[in-house]
Design a protein around this nucleic acid. Structure first.
Length: 107
DNA sequence: CCCCTGACTGTCG
DNA sequence: CCGACAGCCAGGG
């Protein structure tokens, strides 16, 4: 087997999306659509979710990405909420209300 | 090439 | 505010 750090051969597009997600800082919450748009692929919000679903969370802060309405990952809301709260994000009823930084920060 | 699925999104009642 | 619906787009069978 190869050395450590080798991951699946992501396409340039997926690579770009992953890069954007990795650039998110603690307490910075954004949306699937925003990630897709920032990556340069508007309209691929669903693809972002599919990518996170199949990617390893070892180096990907998947918890900092939620739906446009603030909904957390279905089936994993408890863990998701815990991770967000540990970064200072206000989560209520399985949904992000306010985050220190990002799309859900105070307006 | 056709059909179905999905960690999405905006609109409508 | 929330559920139902339709639109959108890539991936897999």
């Amino acid at each position: 087997m190869g050395s450590m750090g080798d991951s699946a051969p992501l396409s340039p597009r997926d690579r770009r999306i992953v890069d954007v997600i990795r650039s998110l800082g603690a307490g910075e919450v954004t949306t699937y659509g925003d990630v897709a748009d920032t990556s340069g692929y508007p309209g691929l919000a669903r693809h972002v979710g599919a990518l996170l679903a199949g990617a390893g969370d070892d180096e990907l802060p998947w918890w900092r990405v939620v739906t446009a309405s603030g909904r957390l990952v279905p089936g994993n809301e408890t863990e998701h909420a815990a991770l967000l709260r540990s970064e200072g994000v206000l989560v209520s009823d399985g949904r992000v209300r306010v985050a220190p930084v990002g799309r859900f920060s105070r307006r």
